[in-house]
Amino acid sequence: MNIIPTVSEIELQGRFDAHEAESFREIVDGILANSASLSVVLTAVDFVDSTALAELVRAMKRCREAGGDLILVKPSDPVRVILELTRLDAAFTIT
């Protein structure tokens, strides 16, 4: 049997900050153990701090090393602006 990497999806809501980073990492690591790509829906996220951005970058690197990608799906306007101001919008795949 071949295991084919698939795209998994998670949705975040509310404030994504340092307090949520550890649980986010645990969930993402669990998913990426079986999948090379991950979509993170950010439509209902109203704020991301620098720690959260670092977690997203870490997940992106892990995906790309596995031949997949981390996709940020429909980020809310504040998140989109924060990505632009930090210039991370150029680094991520954003749909």
Binding site: D46, F47, S50, D77, P78, L85
Partner: peptide, 17 residues
């Protein structure tokens, strides 16, 4: 340096709205 850019982004987005 670690915190201010996301704060600026959040405040700017909300205030402009």
């Amino acid at each position: 340096e670690w915190r201010i850019i996301p704060t600026i982004g959040a405040i700017a987005t909300h205030m402009c709205a």
